[in-house]
């Protein structure tokens, strides 16, 4: 059995939707790939904060 997580890409919409109906206790086992993808996308790749860019100029314009 290939135990490595599926290569993390991004959280899949279907997986996210299905995981909502899985009890918390079972998520780590049944959605291990999703957890790795979320960890990779959301925690490790803590990317550009939204909103900061345009806000200052917007505010100064009004």
């Amino acid at each position: 059995m290939d135990h490595a997580p599926t290569r993390p890409s991004r959280p899949d919409l279907d997986d996210l939707t299905r995981s909502l109906h899985v009890p918390l206790e079972r998520i780590a086992v049944e959605h291990a790939d999703l957890i790795e993808a979320v960890r990779s996308r959301v925690v490790t790749n803590d990317s550009v904060p939204s909103g900061i860019v345009a806000v200052a100029a917007f505010n100064s314009s009004i």
């Binding site: 959280p11 939707t17 909502l20 780590a28 959605h31 999703l34 957890i35 960890r39 925690v43």
Partner: peptide
């Protein structure tokens, strides 16, 4: 509603990651 659900799913996944 779909976006809010996906955000909730992500938070649940993070919670499970914390448990890991």
């Amino acid at each position: 509603a779909l976006l809010a659900d996906t955000q909730l799913s992500i938070t649940r996944a993070l919670l499970a990651a914390c448990r890991d």
